[in-house]
Amino acid sequence: MEFDRQLGPYNLSHFEDWKRLSNFITKSIIERLEPIGGEISVECENDMFRNTPKTSMEEALDKQLKVGSSAKSGGKFQRKGCYYTSIPRVVKCKGMSGQELTSLNLDKTQLLETLLAKDYGGSEDLLLGELQFAFVAFLMGQSLEAFLQWKSLVSLLFGCTEAPFNTRTRLFTKFIKVIYYQLKYGLQKDRTDDTRPPLLDDSWLSTDSFLHYLCKDFFSLVLDGSVVDGDLLKWTRKFKELLENNLGWEFPKNSAVDGLYFEENDEFAPVVEMLDDEAYAI
């Protein structure tokens, strides 16, 4: 065809990488998440996240993403952000005792089940597709909004302690494979130029990052489990080796709380409140 002859050659060396980064992204997922007009732009994100609390890593990332972006003056932006699923960071329910509320926030399994039923129509692949969409939009489109959504979904899944073993073993096996290939791609140097840094910058390499804390607890949960699905165990070990080999991370066991391990000054550890067994009203 005349049109085909005008196209440049496809870079087949990246084809397998792209398949692994996007195998759950479908046309319906793109239509569901993409902003009005279909263009993902970082120009509107300053206003969207002006008052959003950020960690020091996210603030550094925010500054990095602003470099080179064009500044708009005068007129206001129409909202152009993606339509991501809202992921609550803290679960609050009326009528629950303090013990029940603490348990609900320590194990995000119930929140995961609620979101799957309410927002994803029961489809695990839709959730994984959104996870991949957010990662690609962050890595390729330099979108802070996408990074925060990716972080929220990763935090949700790594925050589940029951689902990986009982109700959602297959989902977690697929999730570990997804994040394994995401970080494997993001942390590798450019294949054509060994002097170029990885796509993910140094803020990812610190043991103070949220990802290190989440992985530390999840690895302890799975690798120390008495009965674990074979595929989940295999991919968890593979993911752990990737982080250890590429980042030099170590995952020692610390003081245990309900099977999870937290350091004394771990800002990412869940807050355990000792409340009376009376109803918790919000």
Score class of each variant (00 low, 15 high):
Lys234Cys: 13
Glu124Ile: 11
Leu157Arg: 03
Ser220Val: 14
Asn265Phe: 12
Ile25Asn: 00
Glu113Met: 07
Met48Trp: 07
Leu65Lys: 00
Asn11Phe: 06
Leu116Ile: 06
Leu233Ser: 13
Asn46Asp: 14
Gly98Thr: 04
Thr85Gly: 02
Phe147Val: 00
Gly81Ala: 00
Glu130Asp: 01
Lys184Asn: 15
Ser13Val: 12
Ala146Gly: 06
Phe251Arg: 09
Gly225Ala: 02
Phe175Glu: 06
Thr167Glu: 03
Asp229Lys: 03
Ile179Pro: 00
Asp276Gln: 08
Tyr280Phe: 06
Gly159Glu: 02
Gln110Met: 10
Tyr83Glu: 13
Cys44Phe: 11
Leu112Gly: 03
Glu267Met: 12
Pro35Lys: 02
Met96Ile: 04
Leu247Arg: 08
Leu112Ile: 08
Tyr280Glu: 05
Met57Pro: 05
Phe210Ile: 14
Pro164Thr: 09
Leu157Glu: 07
Lys234Phe: 10
Asp217Val: 12
Gly159Met: 05
Lys184Ile: 10
Phe135Glu: 00
Tyr181His: 11
Ser226Asn: 13
Val257Pro: 04
Asp217Glu: 14
Val271Gln: 05
Leu127His: 00
Leu242Lys: 02
Leu205Ala: 15
Glu124Ser: 12
Gly225Thr: 01
Ile25Thr: 03
Ala256Val: 08
Asp224Ile: 07
Val90Leu: 15
Ala117Gly: 08
Glu267Cys: 14
Pro270Cys: 09
Val90Ile: 11
Arg5Thr: 15
Leu183Lys: 06
Ser13Glu: 05
Arg50Val: 12
Met96Ala: 05
Ala137Pro: 00
Leu144Gln: 03
Leu65Tyr: 03
Leu126Arg: 08
Val136Asp: 04
Ser255Asp: 11
Leu156Val: 06
Arg50Gln: 07
Leu21Pro: 00
Pro197Phe: 07
Ile179Trp: 00
Tyr280Met: 11
Tyr181Cys: 07
